[in-house]
């Protein structure tokens, strides 16, 4: 299922992970740098998004500055994983809900306006699923996410 990318796609993915212009017409700026039209940029980004290669064009926030958040994990019996994952995903405060290979097999990030709201959400999750939610809030970030190099090491 891995896509074969054109050199244009590679440049779109590689050269604009940082410093996306915060200007009224950002895609025009990208187009000028790539030597193509703005509509071509928009069309390729749309295709790359539809194919799932791009999550979004947007911002990456520094954790913990916005509301309260935590990483959380649950030990879900394999036969219930799809159902429990769907319940967890249905909370708008949930992001990055993943299955991982471990007894703790469901992992997600929970962000809430404040600590009280977070308690409420976790209590609801535990009530609906009957499974304990373990929390692993961040204490410190060591690695600054500056984007991801597609080529070379």
């Amino acid at each position: 299922m891995f896509a074969t990318l054109s050199s244009l796609d590679n440049r779109l993915l590689d050269e604009f992970q940082r410093d996306f212009p915060l200007e009224p017409e950002p895609y025009r700026f990208m187009a000028e740098r790539l030597g193509i039209s703005e509509s071509e940029v928009l069309e390729r980004l749309c295709v790359l998004h539809k194919e799932g290669l791009i999550s979004r064009i947007g911002v990456v926030l520094r954790p913990r500055r916005v509301g309260v958040s935590t990483l959380a994990a649950m030990r879900v019996p394999a036969e219930r994983l799809d159902d429990v994952a769907a319940i967890i995903s249905s909370f708008p405060e949930v992001n990055h809900n993943y299955e991982r290979e471990h007894a703790f097999n469901l992992w997600f990030v929970l962000t809430a306006r404040d600590a009280a709201r977070m308690e409420t959400i976790i209590a609801e999750m535990e009530k609906y699923t009957g499974i304990q939610v373990c929390r692993m809030p961040m204490e410190e970030e060591f690695h600054i996410d500056l984007g991801f190099r597609m080529h070379g090491e």
């Binding site: 410093d19 290669l53 064009i57 926030l61 500056l146 597609m150």
Partner: peptide, 15 residues
């Protein structure tokens, strides 16, 4: 507060 602005890729689909 915003640490970067730009394309956010899905690692999995990129291979």
């Amino acid at each position: 507060i915003i640490k970067r602005v730009g394309v956010v890729v899905h690692h999995h689909e990129l291979g």
